[in-house]
Design a protein around this nucleic acid. Structure first.
Ligand SMILES: [Mn+2]
Ligand SMILES: [Mn+2]
Ligand SMILES: [Mn+2]
Ligand SMILES: [Mn+2]
Lengths: 219, 219
DNA sequence: ACAATATTTTAGTCTTATCTAAAATTTAAT
DNA sequence: ATTAAATTTTAGATAAGACTAAAATATTGT
């Protein structure tokens, strides 16, 4: 029931990779995500398989079992709740909280998380717009599109970021874009996918890469 | 500058033992406190000595260096601040917070602790009445006596507990004693050190052992 | 003073989580 | 269909932290 820091981090990594991989998650992919070597991944994956947290067939990659998925989701729940705490209560900026939450997510105490959740007002989303699983691992799914998928004259509200590195978040600050910001596409360049957008009352130019990392809810 | 969980726990243990030991802290004493074996202690103490955190001479026990003492105090500061958070903000009871704080004290982030401290109103004492070191490791010393040292008809306010196991704290709850409770010694039995005391408006009987674990500030 | 006892250290082993180098397997290219 | 290249696994090594059993040192009792 209680897993090591390392095991928990592997489960989280596999969970995130599973969302984008069609087939089983590759050893190399996990190694890259975890900043470790493929041989280390093989070792750990065997151990997780022993504990019935992943399905593993040699050379075929891994998938999470139901147990593994549930476990990953509780860690993600903790991570995101702590991020809300750091931003809402301690006034951290949204680009400063991820590293600290990486540590806090490994604190073992159901009671703590239950009380923290209440203290924070049972939030549905973390500071980056990512959904917070409930205690049973259920995630509230919402309609959201990448800004890059909007056409000219379409508009919406920024509801999340796909990538949430400090660099990107700080760049968004410079552009006056944050969760809740109203955005409208004024122009879209077919050549490079760059856009001219309306941010509040001001016009702004953003690259395709930026547009591909911003989630909006259309109206 | 950043130490492992194990190293931090040893430093903390040595710090607490040094306060009561006249001479260097004995290997056996550390082993008992840490619930580990003396041979493991010897190994760790050598490592801490390498890192200039303790002074160690074979067969002579250990003492903390200035660096080691400062490090121990920052961990204790974190532990106690988190305990305040758990009680004041998450409404945990004072007998439930120690185990969780044992985990939280190892989160590495100066900024986090600085902000947590402000968020909590820069408290001077934790839920058990223990002083919270400031960021430089300075502890606010206060006048306090063990209840067992008071004479008949002397009174005071409960300002802390010496032992803070859940069992003892729950027993104090039953006796309606907590931090801030006014206590007066009505009678003291020389035979076994037991006392009849006034707790608020009610009379109560307590053993010597209990009286020896309650700190009061006399008035 | 000297034997008996207690404490502490050393030597060697174990587990977890890593790594490198080499072998096995799969996938891609001709 | 072979060969070349990429991926994955195995084998063996290392480091941290813990343990047991045995040796070394210190303390105590007579
Ligand atoms: Mn994060
Ligand atoms: Mn987040
Ligand atoms: Mn405590
Ligand atoms: Mn305390």
């Amino acid at each position: 029931m209680k897993y090591s820091l390392s095991e928990e981090n592997y489960l989280k990594a596999i969970y995130h990779l599973e969302k984008i991989a069609a087939t089983g998650v590759a050893t190399n992919a996990i190694a890259e995500q975890m900043e470790t070597k493929p041989s280390s991944v093989t070792d750990m994956v065997k151990k997780l398989s022993e504990k019935d947290l992943v399905n593993y067939i040699k050379y075929q990659g891994v998938t999470l079992t139901e147990k593994g998925r549930k476990t990953a989701l509780t860690i993600i729940r903790k991570h995101r709740l702590w991020e809300v705490f750091l931003v809402d209560k301690l006034n951290f900026h949204w680009d400063q909280v991820h590293e600290i939450a990486e540590q806090l997510e490994h604190i073992h105490s159901e009671e703590l998380i239950s009380r923290l959740d209440k203290f924070l007002g049972e939030p549905d989303f973390d500071p980056h717009g990512d959904p917070i699983p409930d205690k049973h691992g259920n995630i509230k799914r919402t309609e959201k599109k990448l800004l890059s998928d909007l056409d000219k004259n379409q508009g919406g509200v920024c509801v999340g970021v796909k990538e949430s590195s400090a660099e990107f978040l700080q760049y968004l600050d410079k552009k006056k874009i944050t969760i809740g910001t109203k955005i409208k596409v004024l122009g879209k360049e077919f050549f490079d996918g760059s856009m001219v957008i309306l941010v509040g009352k001001d016009q702004s130019f953003i690259s395709k890469k930026t547009a591909e990392n911003l989630y909006v809810q259309t109206n």
